[in-house]
Design a protein around this nucleic acid. Structure first.
Lengths: 210, 210
DNA sequence: TAGATTGTTAATCGATTAACAATC
DNA sequence: TAGATTGTTAATCGATTAACAATC
């Protein structure tokens, strides 16, 4: 499999295409062209075809793509044809919002554990999952076969929590804290800094105000 | 001012540099080199200098940058030297998490209004801000001088809400819904799709599992 | 002055776009 | 067959990196 060096931007677009295709399925559309997908998600049709070409040939020349088939292929490519178990570290505002957010569940993700250090909230539940003390992290990761860690702790604690996650065997980390984290390079790290996004808006707003 | 075509990636890095500089200020560091910043945030020193060069000359050859000065300049560049008023549409899980999250407040953002359509939650408060009916949107945007709208409604409502926001005079939109939104091109739109980030992890995890 | 580090130019790398032959 | 649309190659564009003269 020609797997090497898929641009990150391509993977993100695949995720967006898949969401759009799901919409088309709900609407009962059976066939779609690269041009229609492109229009639907706001990119060029060449982009769509190029992105797909990294992974194979999914369409029929002169016809387009069968919506259901392409959707199935994308789910497989994105690894959404299986379930991934998630552990959330930090059950504060951000962490509990993430835990309560339903958007991931139908896409292959299960929240299997939630940890915190605050005695006052340990023992309470978020959407049926009990908040447990951080000490149980290693045990839960192992016994529940958890591969993804989500970091929603305050910045100063972020690196320590990361080290714990890595040591416990987690393979990928989604970091919501505004800290640059060090991880071994076989661990996949993704930073989702909400502030950066707001500040980007601020930059462009300020730009227009001159 | 040579303002045209700053890469988005550059702006995001500036935001990250600024966060790192703030850390240095807290630690009492007075001078820093591009190499140190680079090491601190995980990019190359050339990258740091290039990013800054879009906006002027901030350092001293042979010496480096004065931390406080550079921090101040970055805040100005990012538009964080003033306050931006925000309206949140949708006070569900995601919306209330966003409202309760403190991370933005000290960076120039004020949550000035929160709207929803659900009678059951209208009237209650999130962090001192009352949840109000969507009908008051136009009025609040005008009277509170709101420039940024945050969309945290379910996907099917996202475009309608966007249209309302645009009509009300909001200049920038942060979209958390997994929908591709149409906006006039003088409105700044930023999509923060949490699912896309998780699915990116899933992709790389699946890649390693073959 | 000697050493250090910036600001900037040129070279490299990678991603997007345009174009078109293949083919349904 | 004629029209449409894919898959792919080549051209373009833009961003990152390397290198170094300027200068503190």
């Amino acid at each position: 499999m020609k797997v090497f060096k898929i641009p990150e931007a391509t993977v993100m677009r695949l995720s967006i295409y898949s969401r759009y295709l799901r919409q088309l399925i709900e609407e009962g559309v059976e066939t779609v062209s690269s041009g229609e997908i492109a229009a639907g998600v706001g990119v060029s049709s060449a982009q769509v075809r190029k992105d797909l070409a990294y992974f194979g040939e999914f369409g029929t020349r002169g016809v387009g793509y069968k919506v259901e088939d392409l959707y199935g292929c994308l789910l497989k490519i994105l690894g959404l044809d299986r379930r991934w178990n998630i552990i959330i570290i930090g059950a504060g505002k951000l962490g509990s919002a993430f835990a309560l957010y339903q958007g991931f569940l139908d896409r292959g993700f299960t929240i299997s554990a939630i940890m915190d250090v605050d005695e006052k909230i340990i023992g309470s539940e978020l959407d049926g999952v009990k908040i447990e003390p951080l000490e149980l992290l290693q045990q839960r990761v192992t016994e529940k076969n958890i591969t993804v860690g989500v970091i929603t702790v305050p910045a100063p604690a972020a690196q320590d929590v990361t080290d714990l996650l890595v040591a416990s065997g987690v393979k990928a980390i989604l970091n919501f804290s505004p800290r640059v984290l060090k991880v071994p390079n076989d661990v996949i790290l993704r930073n989702v800094d909400l502030s950066v996004n707001l500040e980007l808006l601020s930059f462009y707003l300020a730009l227009n105000n001159r």
